[in-house]
Design a protein around this nucleic acid. Structure first.
Lengths: 216, 216
DNA sequence: GCCATAAGTCTACAGGCGTATACATAATCG
DNA sequence: CGATTATGTATACGCCTGTAGACTTATGGC
C-alpha cells in the first residue's frame, strides 16, 4: 500500500471545469500496473465492507481515483474483478496458524481479537459473509476458499476426514465473524475476550483432537 | 415478448381461449387479511431464497398474486415488510429443542438434516445469512434473533454466561448453514451425515457442559 | 518538436429499484 | 337498486446499475 490513496475527492471529473484541479493528492502518473493495483485494492476493501452486490463499480473506481470504465478495461467486468479480489483476499494470509493444539488456541485468540468491536473488521471472512447472498459471488467465493484456505488447513489438521473437519472449523470461524461483526449480537460484542476465546478454543479442540479424549 | 402478465387473466369468460389456464394462484376473493398473509408468506420465502437486497417488491408481490403497490399499502415499505417477515421466520419454530445433552444431540442432527443437499433449504438462518449484507437488514435480523431465539435458547442452556454461550451455539449453527447450504463446499456437502452430526454434536457439547467436566 | 499510442474520461443506453399519485373495480350497506 | 368504500391496478418519477462506444489527454520514441 505504498501509494497513498487517501479518500480524496474526485480529481476533477467534476462537471464543469476543464479540470485544472490543483489536486490536493498528487495525481498518479499514468501507469497501467499501478492503476490496476489501486482498483484491486479498492475492490477488496469495498467488497469486504459492503459485499459484492452492495457496492457499485463507480464507487470502487472513485476510491481508486479513476472512472468506472477502467474496471471493465482492466478486468472485463465487475464479476471478473470480484474473482481477482477474492483471490487477493484469501491468498496471502494464513487464516489459521500452527497445528494441533496450538492451532486451536492460536486460531481462537486471533478470531476473537480480530472480531473485536474496535478492530478493523476487514478480512476474507467478512468479504465472504457479505457477498454470498449473490449466487454467482457465492460460487466464486467457494472456489477461492477451497483453493486457498480449506486445502491448506486440512493438511495442517491431519487425521481422518481432514477436509471435512477443516470445513467445520471454518464454519465456526465464519459463524463467529457473522454473529460478532456482521449481525452484532450484544452478548458476543460485550463478552470478555479472554473467556470468549477459551470457549471458542474448546469448540475447536473438539475437532482437532476428536479421536482422543476431549479433556481441556 | 412474453405475452402479457398472465398471472392474472381477466375473470370474465371473454378471452375465448379454450385453454383453461389453471392459474397458479386461483384468484382470491377480495380479502385484505388473506392478501396480507399471502404477501407475507411470499416475502418470507423470497427473502430466504435471495436475501433482503436480492429480491424486489415486484417479484414478491407477483408471487403473491398482487401488484407491488399493495406491499406499500399493507406494510408501508419494503423494510417494514422485511421486519414482519423476520418475525414470522424466527418466531414460531423452536430453533433448537431439548436441554443439556439432549440439546446438543438433537440440534446437531436437525442441523445436519436440514442442511442436506436435497433438503428444502429454507428457514430463518438462511434468511439471515442472505440478508445481513445490508446493514439495515442486519439490524432487523439482530433484533429479531435476540428477541425470539437467543433469549429462549439461553434459558434452556442455563449455566454461567448462558447468553454468551447461546450466541456461540447459534454461531456454529449459522456457520454450518453458511458453508453447507449457501457456499456449498464439497467436503461438507458430500460428508456422511451421521458422522458429520456427531462432530457437530461434539462441538456443541463443549459449550453445553463446559462448566462440569472441562475446568476453565 | 512531432506523433503514434497507451491510458483515461465522457456520454449514453437499457433496465431495475422503491414508491407516490391517480385511477378502476368489486363488495357491502342503506 | 344505487351509492359508498375498501381493495387492487396502472402509470410514472427519480435514482441507480453495469457496460458499450466515442472521445480526450498524457507519455515515450523518433
Amino acid at each position: 500500500m505504498t501509494d497513498g490513496d487517501a479518500t480524496q475527492e474526485g480529481p476533477g471529473p467534476g462537471s464543469g471545469g476543464p479540470g485544472k484541479a490543483p489536486a490536493p493528492t498528487a495525481r498518479r502518473r499514468r501507469d497501467a500496473a499501478a492503476t490496476r493495483e489501486a482498483i484491486l485494492a479498492s475492490a477488496v476493501e469495498a467488497f469486504t465492507r459492503h459485499g459484492y452486490a452492495g457496492v457499485g463499480v463507480r464507487e470502487i473506481a472513485a476510491r481508486a481515483g479513476v472512472t468506472a470504465m477502467l474496471i471493465n478495461r482492466y478486468f472485463g467486468s465487475k464479476e471478473k474483478l470480484f474473482e481477482q479480489a477474492v483471490d487477493v483476499a484469501f491468498a496471502p494470509r494464513t487464516v489459521v496458524g500452527g497445528s494441533g493444539r496450538t492451532l486451536a488456541r492460536a486460531s481462537a485468540e486471533a478470531l476473537v481479537s480480530r472480531t473485536a468491536p474496535d478492530a478493523d473488521r476487514l478480512g476474507p471472512f467478512l468479504l465472504m459473509l457479505r457477498s454470498v447472498s449473490d449466487p454467482r459471488a457465492a460460487e466464486i467465493v467457494r472456489a477461492g476458499m477451497e483453493r486457498h484456505v480449506a486445502r491448506d488447513l486440512a493438511e495442517r489438521l491431519g487425521g481422518p476426514d481432514a477436509r471435512e473437519r477443516a470445513d467445520l472449523l471454518l464454519s465456526l470461524i465464519a459463524g463467529v465473524w457473522l454473529m460478532r461483526s456482521v449481525v452484532g449480537t450484544r452478548a458476543l460484542a460485550e463478552a470478555d475476550e479472554t473467556r470468549l476465546a477459551r470457549r471458542v478454543e474448546a469448540m475447536f479442540a473438539a475437532l482437532v483432537d476428536e479421536d482422543g479424549s476431549a479433556g481441556s
